[in-house]
Simulated scan of single mutants.
Amino acid sequence: MPVVGGLAGGVGTTTVARALRARDAGVVAGHDLLPDVVLCRDTTSGLALAARALPRPGPGAPVLALHPGTDDPDGVDATAAGPGWAAVVALPAVPGWARATDPWSDAADVLGRTDPPAALRRYAEALGRIAALLTEGGRLTRPLAASARGPLRAVRGVRLG
């Protein structure tokens, strides 16, 4: 079972964990170990947090998933997250989830739908890429990854924990 954690609150950790049927580790700021999937916002400060949590290079690195802050995930400079990630996957926005009282039920069913709306189909495709990366990279057979830089430190203007 994969483990999903976020570098801040509100980055979609629970949503992704429910969709992947994974364990939700909550906020992982300040931990030396990184979960299999790490989430951050697709903003400059979110990518700076990801760069500070950079895993050690090598096989079995965690996947970094970017929580959509914009409708244009292609406009995000994923290289700002650093080179140690197995991959950086931009999650598309799903209209309505931000205002829904229970988006987690929708997320839990996103991979099982046969004919989902376009937004859910794009989200399911991104989750499929994450699952494939975890499987192909052998991530699910390894222990949690140690961060090369130790505990996370605050970025100017960002409060951790």
Rank of each mutant, 00 (worst) to 15 (best):
D32C: 06
G138I: 14
G150S: 09
A78M: 03
E136Y: 10
R99F: 06
A100K: 10
A61N: 07
R156S: 09
G30D: 06
P35K: 06
L127T: 15
G60T: 15
R129V: 15
P151E: 09
L91A: 07
G82H: 12
A119I: 05
L54P: 02
R149W: 14
D106S: 10
A126N: 11
T43V: 05
A80C: 12
R129P: 14
G26I: 14
V63D: 13
H67Y: 15
T70M: 04
L140M: 11
A29W: 12
T44S: 12
R99Y: 06
V63W: 08
G75C: 08
L133I: 09
G5M: 03
D109K: 04
A145G: 11
G82M: 10
D102S: 06
A51L: 09
W85I: 15
D102P: 03
P2I: 08
L20A: 01
D24W: 00
R41L: 01
T79M: 05
S45G: 02
A51G: 08
V110M: 04
A29N: 09
A90G: 15
L120E: 14
V158H: 04
P68L: 06
T101F: 13
A93K: 12
W104R: 09
D106T: 15
H31A: 05
D71W: 11
G60H: 13
P83R: 07
Y123K: 12
E125M: 06
D72K: 06
V110W: 04
A118W: 02
A29C: 11
A118H: 07
L64G: 05
T14H: 10
V11Y: 01
P117L: 01
P151D: 05
A145Q: 11
A124F: 00
S45K: 03
E125F: 05
T135Q: 10
V3G: 03
V155E: 09
G75P: 15
A93Q: 14
